[in-house]
Simulated scan of single mutants.
Amino acid sequence: MTDELVLYTNPMSRGRIARWMLEEAGVAYRVEILQFGTTMKDDGYRAINPMAKVPTLVHGKSVVTECAAICAYLADAFPSAGLAPPVNARANYYRWMFFGAGPLEAAVTNRALGVDVPAGRERMVGYGSFSDVMNTLELALRTNSYIAGDSFTAADVYVGSQIGWGLQFGSIEKRPVFEQYFGRLALRPAYQRASEKDDQAAGELQTAV
């Protein structure tokens, strides 16, 4: 595919996930940095993403929002990067990608906001309890080197980013298996390139304020 890739992002956002994924895909892309409350809310950007949030990926005429979707889209759009299993071997890949987008993010966000699920109402939230989510995630990572098996995939970019942030900000328990898993991911050259670029962009934004 030859259409230009444009990432609309802010370096202090989930856009860091999309940047990492683009670096793993090894493709050329252009970045448009948006600021919260101003350029992210203007009519021009709302025409691309009515939610007025980042990240958004534009690939030619295609617009992709939501980090899990961006990761899955790039893995399929650039198969030579080997970031998705063969179609007939994607059960775990889909399972954990959507686990990250559903139970994991919801449980971690609710915990960070101090939202407690009333006793007996766990079925309503979809993830049961925070401990259920953490124990399930730990079991998966004790069983495999990566979240979907023995090979690194786009699901590791998405789930791994959440674990990395959770460990950094205290919203995910510092269990040894989580620290070991993210430690492996943080050594990846693509992760380090993406982090360096976003850190630089964040510094430039702060200087401009």
Rank of each mutant, 00 (worst) to 15 (best):
V108D: 07
D198K: 03
I70D: 05
F99L: 03
P55C: 00
I147W: 01
P11F: 01
D76T: 04
S80T: 13
W96Y: 15
P85H: 01
A107P: 05
N92S: 12
A25S: 09
R16E: 05
D156W: 01
V115L: 09
Q180I: 15
S195E: 13
A155Q: 07
I163G: 01
E4V: 12
L83C: 04
D43R: 13
Y158C: 02
A52E: 15
I147D: 00
S161G: 00
R19P: 07
T9P: 06
N10S: 10
E173Y: 12
P189T: 10
G183L: 06
P50R: 11
G203T: 06
G164E: 15
A84S: 10
G128W: 01
D76G: 03
T207M: 14
D3K: 13
C67M: 08
A25G: 00
Y29E: 07
Y45M: 12
E24W: 05
M124Q: 13
I70H: 03
N135S: 15
L34D: 09
Y94D: 06
S171H: 13
M134I: 14
L7P: 03
G44A: 11
P85M: 01
A202Y: 07
T39V: 00
R188I: 09
L74A: 01
N88I: 12
R193C: 01
Y45Q: 08
I17P: 02
A208W: 12
L205E: 10
A69S: 13
T9N: 02
K53E: 15
S62N: 13
Y45A: 04
S145H: 14
P79T: 01
L139S: 14
R184G: 07
T9E: 06
Y29S: 06
A18P: 10
V87I: 15
C71Q: 06
D76N: 08
A101L: 03
R175K: 12
A72W: 09
G37C: 07
G82I: 07
F99P: 02
S13K: 05
W96F: 10
G160P: 11
S131F: 02
K174L: 04
Y93P: 02
R19G: 02
N49T: 11
L74H: 07
T153Q: 03
Q180R: 11
P85E: 02
E196F: 12
R188N: 11
R142L: 13
F182C: 01
V133R: 03
F130I: 10
Q192I: 10
Q200E: 12
L185T: 05
A101C: 08
L113V: 10
L139T: 14
A190G: 06
A201D: 06
P79N: 04
T56C: 04
R123S: 13
V125I: 12
G149D: 07
T56H: 02
Y29I: 08
G82M: 01
G82C: 00
V209F: 13
F130N: 05
G37I: 11
P103V: 02
K61T: 14
A84K: 10
